[in-house]
Computed example of a mutant assay.
Amino acid sequence: MNKTKLLISAVLPMLSLTVAAQDDNTPVKGDFTVAATVGYNSYTNVNALPGNLTDYEAIAPNSLWNQKKLMVGFEAGYFVSDKWKLNLGGGLNFNHHPGYPDVPGTIDDITGDDTLGEIPNYRAVASQYSCTWNAYTGVDRYFSISGISNLMWYTGVRVGMAYALNEQKYDEWTSMGKSVGETWSLRGSLTIGFDYYVLPAMFVGFSVDPFAYAYNMTTHKPQEGLKSLEADSHDYSILAAPTLKIGFKF
C-alpha cells in the first residue's frame, strides 16, 4: 500500500504537467509578463584615463555586444492585444575597488658609488568606482506555431539608452588627482525571439537582434579642474545581444 501511494505521488505531478502542456497557455490581451534576463546586453562601458605628467587623450570605447560582460536584468511586458506586446526593460551594474599606495623601489635611487638599484617601483592601485546601466522599450508582434502549443515566436523593434561612469584616483606623487570617464549610447535594433510557456503562468525564452545600431559619446576628464576631452563612435552589429530569459505571466 505504501508503495502504491508513493507511485501515485510521483505520477500525479507529471500527469498534471502533461495536461497543462496540452492546454493553450499563451497570453491574451490584458496579460502582464515579468522576466529576469541574462545576456551580453550591457551595450556600453568606459575606463577613466588618469592624468600624468606628459599628455592626455580621449578614446571612445565601442558599444559592441560581443565585447561586453554578461548582465542580469529584467523585462516587463503588457499585451495590448493577443498578438502585440509593449516592453520595458534594463539592467544595472556597479562596483567599488579600494585603492592602495605605491611602494618605491630602488631602481631610481643612486647609491654612493653611482650605481642604480635593481628593484622596480610598485605603482599604486587606483581607487575606483564604476556604474553601468541600460534601459530600453519596444513593441513585439507574436506569431503562433502550427502544431506546437504554448510556443510563440515574435519579431519587434527596440530603442534604448545606456550609461557608464568610471572614476579613478591614484595615491602617488605622479597622479594629477581624480580622473573621470563617462559615456552614453543611444541604440536601436530589430529583435527576433521565442517564448515557450512551460506552465500556465511561467515561460522561458530566447531573443537575438538581427541588426543593431548604437551611437556612443564618451568624455574623459583626466584631472579635476580641466576641460573634458570628447570622442564618439558609430557601431553596427549583426546577430547582436543574445539573451535568455525566464518569466511569469499575470
Rank of each mutant, 00 (worst) to 15 (best):
D55F: 11
I59L: 11
A60Q: 02
A60I: 05
N62R: 10
N62C: 03
N62L: 08
S63C: 10
S63M: 02
W65Y: 15
N66K: 08
K68P: 00
K69F: 10
L70C: 08
V72I: 15
V72T: 07
G73I: 06
G73K: 03
F74P: 00
E75C: 02
A76T: 13
G77T: 07
F79L: 07
V80E: 12
K83N: 13
K83Y: 13
K83T: 14
K85W: 03
L86T: 06
L88E: 03
G89Q: 02
G90C: 08
G90Y: 09
G90D: 10
N93K: 14
N95C: 01
P101F: 08
P104V: 08
T106L: 06
I107D: 09
I107C: 06
D108Q: 09
D108C: 09
D109M: 14
D109T: 13
D109Q: 15
D109R: 13
I110V: 13
G112W: 05
G112V: 08
D113I: 09
D113K: 04
T115I: 06
P120I: 03
N121R: 03
N121A: 01
A124N: 07
A124E: 07
A124G: 09
V125H: 06
A126G: 11
S127I: 01
S130W: 02
C131Q: 12
T132F: 13
N134S: 12
Y136T: 00
Y136D: 00
T137P: 00
G138E: 11
V139M: 13
D140N: 15
R141Y: 15
Y142F: 12
S144Q: 07
S144L: 00
S144G: 09
S144T: 04
G147K: 10
I148G: 05
I148N: 04
L151Q: 02
W153L: 06
Y154C: 05
T155A: 13
T155D: 07
V157L: 15
R158N: 12
R158M: 13
V159F: 14
V159H: 09
V159K: 07
G160R: 04
G160P: 01
G160E: 04
A162W: 05
A162Q: 05
A162K: 01
Y163L: 06
A164H: 01
L165V: 10
N166K: 01
E167D: 13
Q168N: 04
Q168T: 03
Q168I: 00
Q168D: 01
Q168L: 02
K169Q: 12
Y170P: 00
D171M: 05
E172S: 12
E172T: 08
T174Q: 10
K178D: 06
K178S: 09
K178M: 11
K178G: 02
S179K: 07
S179Q: 09
G181R: 07
E182Q: 10
T183H: 04
W184K: 09
W184T: 08
W184D: 09
S185C: 09
S185Q: 11
L186M: 13
R187S: 11
G188A: 15
